[in-house]
């Protein structure tokens, strides 16, 4: 074994080091070498990225571009697209403010614009409620579970279980629980109360809150696990030092743990916001956003109108609006909120 090997330095780099120490090499071999490297590099890129890129272009980029194209047409999805009528931004106008035709403005406002804004309002209400309700709740549970106590891992598993369940299975389970004659109704009767008059998932006042409860139950596990992972990265010496200095448990959490998992919380908030805008599966399983759209989201609204009413141009316009909102929020969040976290990381890496 040579000294080089023993020192753990890689043979190749040692050779390179020798070469550079020996001064510049003749031109030709280097160019050959470089060309071979380039070909090899592009070969590898093509081989490894190519299939994924083809799939991405076919199943993501192409549909997005197609949707953008459809959104400018009046098209029922049955006739040939070549026969569809080009109507410019009329589909967008119909969704946003009832269209530009004065004769139809009133009807379109109540029939199309209002449900659109209602659905969008539900999305933003869910974003807001996630920050106000899910965040504190998840933090509290994560901080509690971060302490050592018997049965801790079992509790962690139970907390995370809903997140692992498939949306459809979980949705059907809650459908059974909230059935007009289900156990939720029985429970309310047993404590002498009446369930919501219109039904758990249909009542004009309560349905949205019931669905928010189900969503919270479903997705809070992710927040807890993320926060626990963040907390495990907080050095224990800090907490020990603080408690030696006489800090209470609560002070340790508030002044050390929570600030130190800030980046994790911000990433969760980002995922939660994007998830809330795209919320679909659970709401769809729980009767497609409600028979009168009590808890419709922009995605279920798109599905209802675009797909089930065969109003493909309008549905595509909704899809593009949804894409645009997600995109703007994602970019803005990256630039404003996550920028510090990223630059911190870059600085540390240097």
């Amino acid at each position: 074994m040579t000294a080089l090997e023993a020192s753990g330095v890689d043979q190749g780099s040692a050779v390179d080091a020798k070469a550079s120490a020996a001064g510049p090499r003749p031109m030709t071999p280097v160019t050959n070498h470089k060309r071979r490297d380039t070909i090899r590099k592009w070969g590898e890129i093509t081989l490894f990225v190519g299939p994924a890129l083809v799939l991405f272009l076919t199943f993501v980029v192409y549909p997005v571009v197609s949707a953008a194209r459809y959104s400018f047409y009046k098209w029922n999805g049955v006739s040939q697209f070549s026969d569809a009528q080009y109507i410019g931004f009329e589909n967008y106008a119909r969704a946003l403010f009832g269209g530009t035709d004065p004769d139809l403005k009133q009807a379109f406002t109540t029939q199309y614009s209002q449900p659109f804004w209602d659905a969008l309002g539900h999305n933003f209400a869910i974003i807001g409620l996630s920050m106000v309700v899910q965040l504190p709740l998840a933090l509290l549970i994560a901080l509690t579970l971060n302490r050592k106590f018997p049965g801790r891992s079992s509790v962690r598993v139970i907390m995370f279980a809903p997140y692992v369940l498939s949306e459809v299975i979980a949705g059907v389970m809650w459908l059974i629980i909230f059935d007009p004659n289900g156990i939720a109704t029985d429970f309310m009767h047993s404590i002498g109360l009446n369930p919501p008059a219109g039904g758990w998932l249909e009542d004009q006042t309560w349905a949205f809150w019931v669905v928010f409860f189900v969503i919270t139950w479903k997705y809070i596990g992710l927040a807890i696990i993320l926060f626990l992972a963040g907390l495990s990265g907080v050095p224990e010496d800090l907490q020990e030092a603080a408690s030696i200095d006489g800090a209470s448990w609560w002070q340790i959490q508030w002044r050390i743990n929570i600030p130190l998992i800030g980046p994790t919380i911000r990433i969760w908030a980002f995922l939660s916001i994007i998830g809330s805008i795209q919320l679909f599966d659970m709401v769809w399983v729980l009767n497609q956003g409600g028979t009168t759209g009590q808890y419709s989201t922009i995605a279920t609204y798109m599905m209802q109108i675009g797909f089930f009413r065969s109003d493909w141009g309008y549905g595509s316009a909704i899809a593009v609006i949804m894409f645009f909102i997600s995109f703007v929020i994602a970019i803005a969040y990256m630039l404003v909120v996550l920028r510090n976290d990223n630059t911190d990381r870059v600085r540390k890496a240097r």
Binding site: R94, A107, T110, Q111, G198, T292, S310, D311
Partner: peptide, 27 residues
């Protein structure tokens, strides 16, 4: 959708016809 809204106490008989007329204008 208009009829079910009436069942849910959320729409009038005129609303059902309005919904149909509006949809007809889009197809």
């Amino acid at each position: 959708d208009g009829i079910v809204a009436m069942f849910a106490g959320q729409g009038s008989s005129q609303d059902i016809v309005d919904a149909m007329t509006a949809a007809a204008a889009t197809s």
